Each structure stands twice: as C-alpha cells, then as structure tokens.
Simulated assay, not measured.
Amino acid sequence: MVYKFRVILDAEEDVFRDIAILEEDTLEDLHNAIINAFGFDGLEPGSFYTSDDEWSQGDEIPLFDTGDTPGEQKTMADYPLNAILNEDATKIIYVYDFLNMWTFFVELAAIEESESGATYPDLLFAHGEMPASAPENAFSADMDDDIYGEFDDDYDEEDMDMFNDEGFEDIGGYDDHNWN
C-alpha cells in the first residue's frame, strides 16, 4: 500500500507538498522525502512528534539516538510508517533544523494501492514558495507569570549604586581609566 501525505509548512502563506511513500518505509524515509520536497540540504537533524487530531505535540521520534545509552532510544529508522500512522491516527508533526525550527504538519490523506512502474517516495504536488527563513512560531510565556520572581520588584536605584564606577575603583587598585 501507498501512504499519501500532505505536508504543510506552519506559515501564514500556503506552502505544502503532497508526497506518496510506501507504508513499510520508515519515518526516516519520510524525513528524507520531506527535506527533498521542500529543497533543504539535509545537513540539519529533525524530529517527528506524535499528534492527536488537534495537532497537540506528543512524543518525540528523533533522527538520531540522543539517549545516554547507545541503542536505548528508538529513532525514525525504527518506525515503519504503518506502525505509527493508519486510518485512525493520521497526524504527526515534523520539525527540521532546531535552530530555525521549520515546523510542518504532516497528515495522512489517503492509503491506496501502489501503481505499477511508480517509484516511491514520489513528490505528487507542490504548492507555494518556501520563505527565505523559517516562519516565527507564536510561542509565548503566560505574561501573568513573573519569570524573575520578586527580583525585579525588590531591585531599586539604591541597590544599583553598588555597581557605579566609584565602587569598582576601590577594588584591587584598578580604576576605570587604566585597564591595560
């Protein structure tokens, strides 16, 4: 059987690719198909994340074993597509390049018979141009939470006086005019 995916870039503009791949291929094969379909060089790692119907991010499935003990953590190569995705579980999230965080919604759109003579994976359709840089995600902290605790409330002008030039001039005989 062939799994047909729609892979959508998490961006304001519509940028997506439709990919056909064999059901027994692995998540690593899908990773390679996605980076090729979107024109990445493939030099950066990526991860898939399990997801529910509301696109909530679940467990990570990395490209490489990053566990403390080699072989302890399963990777993309350990998961055939049909072990993760089926008619009931159709959505996963893919993140490529953790510095830039290219994020994609990957949805299983159809399961069909393979076509004789076809080679898989196959890019079926491409829509939209890739932006020059990864779109910003709208991740933000709850502004009601004070990440500094009481530090910024208790720190006032009087406390800042300890950092003035006079305070440093007396330390070890150095002054701010002769650092060399």
Score class of each variant (00 low, 15 high):
30 L>A: 05
30 L>F: 00
31 H>C: 08
32 N>K: 11
32 N>D: 12
33 A>F: 06
37 A>V: 04
39 G>T: 07
40 F>I: 06
41 D>F: 10
43 L>A: 05
44 E>W: 05
44 E>L: 11
46 G>W: 07
47 S>F: 01
48 F>T: 01
49 Y>A: 03
54 E>D: 15
58 G>V: 10
61 I>N: 01
62 P>Q: 08
62 P>K: 08
64 F>Q: 09
65 D>R: 03
65 D>L: 14
66 T>Q: 07
66 T>W: 13
66 T>M: 12
68 D>I: 15
70 P>D: 01
74 K>M: 08
77 A>S: 11
78 D>G: 01
79 Y>T: 01
82 N>W: 04
82 N>D: 07
83 A>G: 01
84 I>W: 04
85 L>Y: 03
85 L>D: 05
85 L>W: 07
86 N>V: 14
87 E>K: 14
88 D>A: 10
89 A>N: 15
91 K>D: 13
91 K>S: 12
94 Y>S: 05
96 Y>G: 06
97 D>Y: 13
101 M>V: 14
101 M>L: 15
103 T>S: 13
104 F>M: 06
106 V>A: 02
107 E>D: 11
108 L>W: 00
109 A>R: 14
110 A>P: 03
112 E>R: 09
112 E>N: 07
112 E>K: 14
113 E>P: 00
115 E>M: 10
117 G>I: 03
121 P>V: 04
126 A>P: 01
128 G>Y: 03
130 M>V: 12
131 P>W: 07
133 S>N: 14
133 S>G: 08
134 A>S: 15
134 A>G: 06
135 P>C: 09
137 N>D: 08
141 A>L: 14
145 D>Y: 12
145 D>K: 07
146 D>R: 13
148 Y>P: 00
152 D>N: 05
153 D>K: 13
154 D>N: 12
157 E>Q: 12
158 E>N: 07
160 M>I: 02
160 M>V: 01
160 M>W: 12
164 N>I: 03
165 D>L: 06
168 F>E: 11
170 D>W: 04
171 I>L: 13
